[in-house]
Computed example of a mutant assay.
Amino acid sequence: MRGQVLGVDRNGREGRIAGDDGQRYWFEPDDWSDRTGPMVGAQVDFEVSNGRALRIYHVPGTVAPRPAADPARPRPRKDKVAAALLAFFLGIFGVHRFYLGRVGSGIAMLVLTCTLVGIFVTSIWSLIDFIRYLVMDNDEFHHRYG
């Protein structure tokens, strides 16, 4: 069967393929039969067994899409102390939220800061974030903000 790679989880342990039959199939890294490995958007040919894609190959002649996240090369970890310091010194502008990848709440803090009442709200919000980051366990912090 043919299909397209939809994605691979952050740890690279499992991924999904949308088959040409409209069904979705899961796979693991060991299911790949070529050296290239999974790439999001790649056109692939595979066999199916109980909802699992097996013996997966890239379709020859298709354009090579952007590679999926490489599990051997993890994303850079965010520093807990840096986030806390940003929250303390620049927190009313939401800089710590942008740093941690929480763009929506960062924009909300930035917009709130434009009003007099909002400055008070974002001051308290950033102080709570500052304290929360410092007392949070390192593993929990990296799990949340990876």
Rank of each mutant, 00 (worst) to 15 (best):
F89R: 07
R10E: 02
F98R: 11
T36N: 10
G15I: 00
A84Q: 02
V5S: 06
G19W: 13
M1G: 04
W26T: 10
R52C: 00
A69F: 15
R24E: 10
G3Y: 14
Q23M: 05
G104A: 12
V111R: 04
V81N: 07
A18R: 11
R35G: 15
F89P: 05
D31C: 11
L6R: 01
E28F: 11
Y145D: 00
P65E: 05
F141T: 01
R2A: 01
L90S: 03
S126F: 09
N138R: 15
Y25E: 05
S126C: 07
R13Q: 06
L90T: 07
H142W: 05
L112R: 08
A69M: 09
F89G: 04
F46W: 08
L54M: 13
V5W: 01
T115R: 02
A64Q: 08
A64C: 01
L110D: 00
V117Y: 14
V111T: 08
S49L: 10
A68P: 07
G37T: 06
R132G: 06
V40Q: 05
V40G: 00
P71N: 04
N138I: 01
Y25R: 05
V8T: 02
Y99A: 00
R75F: 07
R73K: 10
A72M: 11
R132W: 14
H143V: 01
M39I: 05
T62W: 09
R35E: 15
G106T: 10
L134A: 08
G12C: 05
N11G: 04
D139K: 15
E140A: 13
R75V: 00
A69I: 05
F130G: 04
Y25L: 07
D70L: 11
F141L: 12
F89A: 06
E47H: 03
T115L: 15
L90F: 15
W125R: 07
D79P: 13
G61R: 13
V117A: 11
D139P: 14
P65Y: 09
A108K: 15
V117T: 09
A87W: 09
R102K: 10
T36V: 04
R2D: 01
P60I: 06
G118K: 11
A72F: 15
I119T: 07
M39S: 09
R55S: 04
M109V: 03
F27H: 08
G61V: 04
Y133C: 07
N138P: 13
K78M: 12
V95N: 12
T122F: 05
M1Q: 10
F98P: 08
H143Y: 13
T115D: 11
S126L: 01
H58V: 01
N50I: 01
V81H: 02
G19M: 11
G91S: 02
V59P: 13
V81T: 08
V44Y: 15
H96G: 03
D9P: 06
D137V: 10
E14Y: 08
M39E: 08
E140I: 03
G22M: 14
N50W: 13
S49W: 11
P38S: 07
V63M: 14
D20L: 15
A84D: 01
F98W: 11
M39R: 12
I17S: 02
D45F: 13
N50P: 04
L127N: 06
F88I: 04
E140Y: 09
F88E: 03
R13S: 08
K78G: 03
